[in-house]
Write a protein that binds this DNA or RNA. Sequence first.
DNA 1: TCTGGGGTCCTAGGACCC
DNA 2: TCTGGGGTCCTAGGACCC
Length: 421
Amino acid sequence: MFALADCNNFFVSCERVFQPELEGRPVVVLSNNDGCVVARSAESKALGVPMGTPIFKLKNLVESGRLAVRSSNYTLYGDLSRRVMNILRDAIPDMEVYSIDEAFLNLEGLPEKEMLPLCRELVKKVKKWTGVPVSIGIAPTKTLGKVANHFAKRYPGYRGVCMINDDAKRDKALSLTPIDDVWGIGWRAAPKLEAAGVRTAADFVARPESWVRGRMGITGVRTWKELQGFSCIEEPELERRQSICTSRSFAELITDKDELLLRVSDFAGICAAKLRKEHSVAGEVGLFIQTNRFRADLPQYAPWASVKMDPPVSSTPEIVSAASRLLDSLWQDGYGYKKAGVVVSDTHPDDEVQGSLFDDRLQDRERENKLSAIMDRVNAAAGRNMLRVATQRPGHYSDGIRREHCSGLYSTSWDELLLVR
DNA sequence: TCTGGGGTCCTAGGACCC
DNA sequence: TCTGGGGTCCTAGGACCC
Protein backbone atom coordinates (compact mmCIF):
# COMPACT_ATOMS: atom_id res chain seq x y z
CA MET A 1 0.00 0.00 0.00
CA PHE A 2 1.06 3.57 -0.74
CA ALA A 3 0.18 6.70 1.19
CA LEU A 4 0.16 9.88 -0.87
CA ALA A 5 0.72 12.88 1.38
CA ASP A 6 -0.18 16.11 -0.41
CA CYS A 7 -0.17 19.56 1.18
CA ASN A 8 -3.41 21.50 0.83
CA ASN A 9 -3.13 24.62 -1.38
CA PHE A 10 0.56 24.50 -0.54
CA PHE A 11 1.83 27.95 -1.60
CA VAL A 12 -1.19 29.66 -0.07
CA SER A 13 -0.79 27.63 3.13
CA CYS A 14 2.89 28.68 3.34
CA GLU A 15 1.89 32.34 3.07
CA ARG A 16 -0.71 31.86 5.77
CA VAL A 17 1.74 30.30 8.22
CA PHE A 18 3.40 33.69 8.61
CA GLN A 19 0.41 35.89 7.76
CA PRO A 20 -2.49 34.50 9.78
CA GLU A 21 -4.62 37.43 8.67
CA LEU A 22 -4.94 35.57 5.35
CA GLU A 23 -6.74 32.71 7.09
CA GLY A 24 -10.33 32.27 5.92
CA ARG A 25 -9.90 34.77 3.06
CA PRO A 26 -9.74 34.20 -0.69
CA VAL A 27 -6.01 34.19 -1.51
CA VAL A 28 -4.04 33.41 -4.65
CA VAL A 29 -0.31 33.05 -5.27
CA LEU A 30 1.10 34.19 -8.61
CA SER A 31 3.71 32.67 -10.89
CA ASN A 32 7.13 34.19 -11.42
CA ASN A 33 6.92 37.70 -12.85
CA ASP A 34 3.44 37.99 -11.28
CA GLY A 35 1.96 36.44 -14.41
CA CYS A 36 -0.84 34.07 -13.55
CA VAL A 37 -2.47 32.21 -10.67
CA VAL A 38 -0.57 29.08 -9.60
CA ALA A 39 -2.18 28.43 -6.21
CA ARG A 40 -5.62 29.16 -4.78
CA SER A 41 -7.10 28.93 -1.32
CA ALA A 42 -10.39 27.06 -0.89
CA GLU A 43 -12.13 30.44 -0.65
CA SER A 44 -10.71 31.69 -3.97
CA LYS A 45 -11.71 28.40 -5.64
CA ALA A 46 -15.20 29.00 -4.29
CA LEU A 47 -15.11 32.49 -5.82
CA GLY A 48 -14.63 30.75 -9.16
CA VAL A 49 -11.02 31.74 -9.86
CA PRO A 50 -9.65 29.16 -12.33
CA MET A 51 -6.10 27.82 -12.09
CA GLY A 52 -3.76 29.64 -14.44
CA THR A 53 -5.81 32.83 -14.75
CA PRO A 54 -3.69 35.80 -15.82
CA ILE A 55 -3.82 38.25 -12.95
CA PHE A 56 -5.06 41.18 -15.04
CA LYS A 57 -8.33 39.34 -15.49
CA LEU A 58 -8.87 39.44 -11.72
CA LYS A 59 -8.27 43.17 -11.39
CA ASN A 60 -11.76 43.90 -10.08
CA LEU A 61 -11.60 41.30 -7.33
CA VAL A 62 -8.17 42.47 -6.23
CA GLU A 63 -8.87 46.19 -6.26
CA SER A 64 -12.14 45.79 -4.39
CA GLY A 65 -10.28 43.90 -1.66
CA ARG A 66 -12.16 40.67 -2.18
CA LEU A 67 -9.08 38.73 -3.24
CA ALA A 68 -5.65 38.80 -1.58
CA VAL A 69 -2.63 38.34 -3.85
CA ARG A 70 0.95 37.23 -3.17
CA SER A 71 3.93 36.89 -5.50
CA SER A 72 5.57 33.49 -5.30
CA ASN A 73 8.30 33.20 -2.69
CA TYR A 74 10.11 29.98 -3.50
CA THR A 75 12.70 30.37 -0.76
CA LEU A 76 9.90 30.21 1.77
CA TYR A 77 8.11 27.31 0.07
CA GLY A 78 11.31 25.31 -0.25
CA ASP A 79 12.06 25.75 3.43
CA LEU A 80 8.61 24.69 4.59
CA SER A 81 8.61 21.79 2.14
CA ARG A 82 11.84 20.49 3.63
CA ARG A 83 10.35 20.63 7.13
CA VAL A 84 7.19 18.79 6.08
CA MET A 85 9.20 16.10 4.24
CA ASN A 86 11.46 15.57 7.25
CA ILE A 87 8.47 14.88 9.49
CA LEU A 88 7.04 12.39 6.97
CA ARG A 89 10.39 10.69 6.46
CA ASP A 90 10.81 10.34 10.21
CA ALA A 91 7.64 8.22 10.31
CA ILE A 92 8.10 6.31 7.02
CA PRO A 93 11.72 6.29 5.84
CA ASP A 94 10.85 4.61 2.52
CA MET A 95 9.58 7.77 0.90
CA GLU A 96 9.63 9.24 -2.58
CA VAL A 97 9.43 13.04 -2.67
CA TYR A 98 7.35 13.52 -5.79
CA SER A 99 7.15 17.32 -5.90
CA ILE A 100 7.58 20.31 -3.64
CA ASP A 101 4.32 19.58 -1.86
CA GLU A 102 3.73 15.84 -2.11
CA ALA A 103 5.37 12.52 -1.32
CA PHE A 104 4.57 8.83 -1.72
CA LEU A 105 5.14 6.81 1.45
CA ASN A 106 5.66 3.09 1.04
CA LEU A 107 3.60 1.39 3.75
CA GLU A 108 4.78 -2.11 2.92
CA GLY A 109 5.18 -4.21 6.06
CA LEU A 110 2.81 -2.09 8.12
CA PRO A 111 -0.31 -3.96 9.36
CA GLU A 112 -3.33 -2.61 7.52
CA LYS A 113 -5.23 -1.67 10.65
CA GLU A 114 -2.39 0.60 11.76
CA MET A 115 -2.31 2.60 8.51
CA LEU A 116 -5.23 4.89 9.14
CA PRO A 117 -4.28 5.82 12.74
CA LEU A 118 -0.65 6.39 11.78
CA CYS A 119 -1.56 8.69 8.89
CA ARG A 120 -4.09 10.61 10.99
CA GLU A 121 -1.34 11.16 13.54
CA LEU A 122 0.99 12.39 10.76
CA VAL A 123 -1.58 14.88 9.50
CA LYS A 124 -1.87 16.33 13.01
CA LYS A 125 1.87 16.40 13.57
CA VAL A 126 2.66 18.19 10.29
CA LYS A 127 0.01 20.80 11.02
CA LYS A 128 1.18 21.32 14.58
CA TRP A 129 4.89 21.44 13.85
CA THR A 130 4.88 23.43 10.59
CA GLY A 131 1.43 25.03 10.30
CA VAL A 132 0.89 23.42 6.89
CA PRO A 133 -2.31 21.39 6.38
CA VAL A 134 -1.75 18.07 4.61
CA SER A 135 -4.07 15.31 3.35
CA ILE A 136 -3.23 11.65 2.86
CA GLY A 137 -4.69 9.06 0.50
CA ILE A 138 -3.93 5.38 1.12
CA ALA A 139 -4.36 2.79 -1.64
CA PRO A 140 -2.66 -0.16 -3.34
CA THR A 141 -1.40 1.94 -6.30
CA LYS A 142 -0.18 5.48 -6.77
CA THR A 143 -3.01 6.44 -9.10
CA LEU A 144 -5.59 5.17 -6.60
CA GLY A 145 -3.65 6.99 -3.87
CA LYS A 146 -4.32 10.18 -5.83
CA VAL A 147 -8.01 9.32 -5.99
CA ALA A 148 -8.11 8.64 -2.24
CA ASN A 149 -6.28 11.88 -1.59
CA HIS A 150 -8.92 13.84 -3.51
CA PHE A 151 -11.58 12.41 -1.23
CA ALA A 152 -9.52 13.16 1.88
CA LYS A 153 -9.25 16.78 0.75
CA ARG A 154 -12.83 17.22 -0.33
CA TYR A 155 -14.74 15.74 2.59
CA PRO A 156 -13.93 16.88 6.16
CA GLY A 157 -15.48 13.66 7.47
CA TYR A 158 -12.30 11.81 6.54
CA ARG A 159 -10.30 13.98 8.96
CA GLY A 160 -7.52 14.34 6.41
CA VAL A 161 -7.03 10.66 5.55
CA CYS A 162 -8.93 8.40 3.15
CA MET A 163 -8.10 4.76 2.53
CA ILE A 164 -9.17 2.64 -0.44
CA ASN A 165 -8.47 -0.91 0.65
CA ASP A 166 -11.16 -3.12 -0.88
CA ASP A 167 -13.09 -3.58 -4.13
CA ALA A 168 -16.29 -1.98 -2.87
CA LYS A 169 -14.56 1.23 -1.80
CA ARG A 170 -12.59 1.32 -5.03
CA ASP A 171 -15.65 0.90 -7.24
CA LYS A 172 -17.51 3.60 -5.36
CA ALA A 173 -14.56 6.00 -5.53
CA LEU A 174 -14.07 5.41 -9.27
CA SER A 175 -17.72 6.01 -10.06
CA LEU A 176 -17.55 9.35 -8.20
CA THR A 177 -14.35 10.49 -9.94
CA PRO A 178 -14.74 12.49 -13.18
CA ILE A 179 -12.37 11.27 -15.87
CA ASP A 180 -10.49 14.56 -16.07
CA ASP A 181 -9.63 14.31 -12.35
CA VAL A 182 -7.69 11.10 -12.94
CA TRP A 183 -3.90 11.35 -12.59
CA GLY A 184 -2.41 10.76 -16.04
CA ILE A 185 -5.45 11.93 -18.01
CA GLY A 186 -4.58 15.38 -19.28
CA TRP A 187 -6.43 18.18 -21.00
CA ARG A 188 -5.93 16.64 -24.45
CA ALA A 189 -7.23 13.16 -23.66
CA ALA A 190 -10.12 14.07 -21.35
CA PRO A 191 -12.41 15.69 -23.96
CA LYS A 192 -11.84 12.80 -26.35
CA LEU A 193 -12.75 10.28 -23.68
CA GLU A 194 -15.85 12.22 -22.73
CA ALA A 195 -16.91 12.35 -26.36
CA ALA A 196 -16.60 8.55 -26.42
CA GLY A 197 -18.93 8.29 -23.43
CA VAL A 198 -16.28 7.92 -20.73
CA ARG A 199 -17.32 10.37 -18.04
CA THR A 200 -15.93 8.78 -14.88
CA ALA A 201 -12.95 6.66 -13.87
CA ALA A 202 -15.41 3.76 -13.53
CA ASP A 203 -16.47 4.17 -17.18
CA PHE A 204 -12.81 4.14 -18.14
CA VAL A 205 -11.88 0.87 -16.40
CA ALA A 206 -14.99 -0.76 -17.88
CA ARG A 207 -13.51 -0.38 -21.38
CA PRO A 208 -11.39 -3.25 -22.72
CA GLU A 209 -7.63 -2.94 -22.60
CA SER A 210 -7.35 -2.97 -26.40
CA TRP A 211 -9.68 0.03 -26.64
CA VAL A 212 -7.49 1.99 -24.23
CA ARG A 213 -4.27 0.84 -25.88
CA GLY A 214 -5.49 1.89 -29.33
CA ARG A 215 -6.42 5.39 -28.25
CA MET A 216 -3.94 6.27 -25.54
CA GLY A 217 -0.92 4.03 -25.97
CA ILE A 218 1.04 2.36 -23.25
CA THR A 219 0.68 5.24 -20.80
CA GLY A 220 -3.12 5.01 -20.98
CA VAL A 221 -2.97 1.27 -20.29
CA ARG A 222 -0.84 1.90 -17.22
CA THR A 223 -3.37 4.34 -15.81
CA TRP A 224 -6.14 1.85 -16.64
CA LYS A 225 -4.37 -0.91 -14.70
CA GLU A 226 -3.42 1.30 -11.79
CA LEU A 227 -7.06 2.29 -11.34
CA GLN A 228 -7.90 -1.40 -10.98
CA GLY A 229 -5.33 -1.90 -8.27
CA PHE A 230 -2.44 -3.29 -10.33
CA SER A 231 0.62 -1.25 -9.54
CA CYS A 232 2.73 -0.37 -12.57
CA ILE A 233 4.19 3.07 -11.99
CA GLU A 234 7.64 2.52 -10.61
CA GLU A 235 9.66 4.87 -8.50
CA PRO A 236 12.05 6.75 -10.77
CA GLU A 237 15.53 5.64 -9.82
CA LEU A 238 17.06 8.70 -11.36
CA GLU A 239 18.99 10.60 -8.75
CA ARG A 240 20.58 12.75 -11.42
CA ARG A 241 18.35 14.98 -13.45
CA GLN A 242 18.62 14.39 -17.20
CA SER A 243 18.24 18.07 -17.97
CA ILE A 244 18.28 21.30 -16.01
CA CYS A 245 16.51 24.40 -17.25
CA THR A 246 16.76 27.94 -15.92
CA SER A 247 14.41 30.37 -17.60
CA ARG A 248 12.46 33.49 -16.76
CA SER A 249 10.03 35.99 -18.21
CA PHE A 250 11.05 39.62 -17.89
CA ALA A 251 9.05 42.52 -16.57
CA GLU A 252 10.04 44.62 -19.60
CA LEU A 253 10.75 43.73 -23.22
CA ILE A 254 14.50 43.59 -23.79
CA THR A 255 15.77 45.17 -27.01
CA ASP A 256 19.45 45.50 -26.13
CA LYS A 257 21.71 42.54 -26.76
CA ASP A 258 24.10 43.30 -23.90
CA GLU A 259 21.19 43.51 -21.49
CA LEU A 260 19.93 40.12 -22.63
CA LEU A 261 23.45 38.72 -22.36
CA LEU A 262 23.49 39.64 -18.67
CA ARG A 263 20.34 37.59 -18.10
CA VAL A 264 21.40 34.67 -20.26
CA SER A 265 24.81 34.53 -18.56
CA ASP A 266 23.12 34.50 -15.20
CA PHE A 267 20.81 31.64 -16.24
CA ALA A 268 23.85 29.75 -17.53
CA GLY A 269 25.67 30.35 -14.24
CA ILE A 270 22.69 29.02 -12.27
CA CYS A 271 22.55 25.91 -14.48
CA ALA A 272 26.28 25.32 -13.93
CA ALA A 273 25.95 25.66 -10.16
CA LYS A 274 22.95 23.29 -10.13
CA LEU A 275 24.91 20.75 -12.17
CA ARG A 276 27.84 20.83 -9.76
CA LYS A 277 25.53 20.58 -6.79
CA GLU A 278 24.38 17.18 -7.97
CA HIS A 279 27.85 16.18 -9.17
CA SER A 280 26.83 16.12 -12.83
CA VAL A 281 28.32 17.34 -16.05
CA ALA A 282 26.38 18.21 -19.21
CA GLY A 283 27.12 17.13 -22.77
CA GLU A 284 24.87 19.75 -24.30
CA VAL A 285 24.03 23.39 -23.64
CA GLY A 286 20.96 24.97 -25.22
CA LEU A 287 19.44 28.44 -25.32
CA PHE A 288 16.04 29.80 -26.24
CA ILE A 289 14.94 33.40 -26.48
CA GLN A 290 11.35 34.52 -27.09
CA THR A 291 9.42 37.63 -27.97
CA ASN A 292 6.10 38.27 -26.23
CA ARG A 293 3.72 35.82 -27.91
CA PHE A 294 0.68 37.70 -26.61
CA ARG A 295 1.58 40.87 -28.45
CA ALA A 296 -0.02 40.21 -31.80
CA ASP A 297 0.95 43.74 -32.84
CA LEU A 298 4.69 43.02 -32.58
CA PRO A 299 6.87 40.82 -34.79
CA GLN A 300 7.47 37.36 -33.31
CA TYR A 301 10.69 35.40 -33.06
CA ALA A 302 11.37 32.38 -30.81
CA PRO A 303 14.46 30.47 -31.87
CA TRP A 304 16.29 27.64 -30.11
CA ALA A 305 19.85 26.42 -30.58
CA SER A 306 22.18 24.08 -28.78
CA VAL A 307 25.79 23.01 -28.84
CA LYS A 308 27.45 19.73 -27.88
CA MET A 309 30.10 19.83 -25.18
CA ASP A 310 32.86 17.29 -25.59
CA PRO A 311 33.96 16.40 -23.02
CA PRO A 312 30.89 17.21 -20.90
CA VAL A 313 31.31 20.21 -18.58
CA SER A 314 30.00 21.84 -15.42
CA SER A 315 32.28 24.86 -14.98
CA THR A 316 30.67 28.27 -14.90
CA PRO A 317 33.04 29.89 -17.44
CA GLU A 318 32.49 27.15 -20.01
CA ILE A 319 28.72 27.07 -19.74
CA VAL A 320 28.40 30.85 -19.66
CA SER A 321 30.62 31.15 -22.69
CA ALA A 322 28.68 28.48 -24.59
CA ALA A 323 25.43 30.32 -23.81
CA SER A 324 26.99 33.58 -24.89
CA ARG A 325 28.05 32.11 -28.24
CA LEU A 326 24.55 30.70 -28.71
CA LEU A 327 23.10 34.14 -28.07
CA ASP A 328 25.41 35.53 -30.77
CA SER A 329 23.98 33.03 -33.23
CA LEU A 330 20.32 33.59 -32.28
CA TRP A 331 20.19 37.32 -31.69
CA GLN A 332 18.30 39.42 -34.21
CA ASP A 333 17.90 43.16 -33.92
CA GLY A 334 14.46 44.65 -34.08
CA TYR A 335 12.65 42.37 -31.64
CA GLY A 336 11.60 42.88 -28.03
CA TYR A 337 12.52 39.82 -25.99
CA LYS A 338 10.21 38.79 -23.17
CA LYS A 339 11.68 35.52 -22.01
CA ALA A 340 14.85 33.46 -22.26
CA GLY A 341 16.19 30.20 -20.88
CA VAL A 342 19.28 28.04 -20.72
CA VAL A 343 18.96 24.25 -20.75
CA VAL A 344 21.79 21.88 -19.97
CA SER A 345 21.19 18.23 -20.86
CA ASP A 346 22.81 14.90 -21.67
CA THR A 347 24.05 14.79 -18.08
CA HIS A 348 26.54 12.30 -16.65
CA PRO A 349 28.08 11.73 -13.23
CA ASP A 350 31.13 13.97 -12.99
CA ASP A 351 33.40 11.09 -11.94
CA GLU A 352 32.64 9.14 -15.12
CA VAL A 353 33.75 11.73 -17.65
CA GLN A 354 35.64 10.33 -20.56
CA GLY A 355 38.39 12.59 -21.84
CA SER A 356 38.23 13.66 -25.44
CA LEU A 357 41.00 12.59 -27.77
CA PHE A 358 41.12 16.04 -29.31
CA ASP A 359 40.78 18.08 -26.17
CA ASP A 360 43.16 20.98 -26.63
CA ARG A 361 41.90 22.80 -23.55
CA LEU A 362 42.65 20.15 -20.96
CA GLN A 363 44.73 22.41 -18.74
CA ASP A 364 42.36 25.38 -18.97
CA ARG A 365 39.55 23.05 -18.16
CA GLU A 366 41.18 21.80 -14.99
CA ARG A 367 41.78 25.35 -13.86
CA GLU A 368 38.21 26.35 -14.62
CA ASN A 369 36.88 23.42 -12.64
CA LYS A 370 38.94 24.45 -9.64
CA LEU A 371 37.76 28.01 -10.07
CA SER A 372 34.13 26.87 -10.13
CA ALA A 373 34.62 24.83 -6.97
CA ILE A 374 35.97 27.94 -5.24
CA MET A 375 33.04 30.00 -6.53
CA ASP A 376 30.63 27.47 -5.03
CA ARG A 377 32.35 27.63 -1.64
CA VAL A 378 32.51 31.41 -1.55
CA ASN A 379 28.96 31.84 -2.77
CA ALA A 380 27.68 29.32 -0.24
CA ALA A 381 29.28 31.32 2.55
CA ALA A 382 28.90 34.88 1.32
CA GLY A 383 25.76 34.87 -0.81
CA ARG A 384 24.72 33.96 -4.31
CA ASN A 385 26.67 35.62 -7.14
CA MET A 386 29.20 37.13 -4.74
CA LEU A 387 31.73 35.62 -7.13
CA ARG A 388 30.57 35.52 -10.73
CA VAL A 389 31.64 35.76 -14.33
CA ALA A 390 31.73 39.37 -15.46
CA THR A 391 28.85 38.97 -17.91
CA GLN A 392 26.59 37.67 -15.12
CA ARG A 393 24.37 40.28 -13.57
CA PRO A 394 25.26 41.72 -10.20
CA GLY A 395 22.44 42.13 -7.73
CA HIS A 396 19.51 39.99 -6.84
CA TYR A 397 18.16 37.27 -9.07
CA SER A 398 14.67 38.71 -9.02
CA ASP A 399 15.81 42.05 -10.50
CA GLY A 400 13.94 42.69 -13.70
CA ILE A 401 11.29 40.15 -12.74
CA ARG A 402 8.04 41.48 -11.42
CA ARG A 403 7.35 40.63 -7.77
CA GLU A 404 5.03 43.30 -6.55
CA HIS A 405 3.23 41.35 -3.84
CA CYS A 406 6.03 39.41 -2.26
CA SER A 407 5.75 38.36 1.36
CA GLY A 408 8.59 38.69 3.85
CA LEU A 409 11.67 36.52 4.32
CA TYR A 410 10.20 34.67 7.27
CA SER A 411 12.16 31.44 7.20
CA THR A 412 14.88 32.99 5.40
CA SER A 413 18.25 31.98 4.21
CA TRP A 414 21.42 33.95 4.64
CA ASP A 415 22.07 34.78 1.01
CA GLU A 416 18.67 36.36 0.53
CA LEU A 417 19.08 38.44 3.66
CA LEU A 418 22.44 39.61 2.41
CA LEU A 419 21.33 40.54 -1.08
CA VAL A 420 17.89 41.91 -0.47
CA ARG A 421 17.61 45.65 -0.84
C1' DT B 1 0.31 47.45 -19.29
C1' DC B 2 -0.33 42.45 -17.28
C1' DT B 3 -0.46 35.50 -19.71
C1' DG B 4 5.14 30.70 -15.11
C1' DG B 5 8.95 27.50 -14.64
C1' DG B 6 10.89 22.98 -14.49
C1' DG B 7 10.71 18.41 -15.38
C1' DT B 8 9.76 13.14 -17.45
C1' DC B 9 8.29 9.68 -20.70
C1' DC B 10 6.56 7.92 -25.16
C1' DT B 11 6.28 7.67 -30.17
C1' DA B 12 7.27 7.83 -35.00
C1' DG B 13 10.43 8.38 -38.49
C1' DG B 14 15.02 8.69 -40.37
C1' DA B 15 19.87 7.30 -40.48
C1' DC B 16 22.72 3.85 -39.98
C1' DC B 17 24.57 -0.92 -39.00
C1' DC B 18 25.36 -5.96 -40.62
C1' DT C 1 16.26 -7.59 -63.89
C1' DC C 2 16.80 -8.41 -59.21
C1' DT C 3 17.12 -4.57 -54.94
C1' DG C 4 15.89 -8.45 -47.58
C1' DG C 5 15.39 -8.60 -42.89
C1' DG C 6 16.42 -7.30 -38.51
C1' DG C 7 18.34 -4.39 -35.50
C1' DT C 8 19.97 0.23 -32.73
C1' DC C 9 20.34 5.02 -32.01
C1' DC C 10 18.97 9.71 -32.42
C1' DT C 11 15.70 13.41 -32.78
C1' DA C 12 11.65 16.25 -32.62
C1' DG C 13 7.34 16.73 -31.05
C1' DG C 14 3.49 15.56 -28.15
C1' DA C 15 1.50 14.67 -23.73
C1' DC C 16 1.62 14.69 -19.12
C1' DC C 17 2.95 16.08 -14.27
C1' DC C 18 3.36 19.75 -10.33
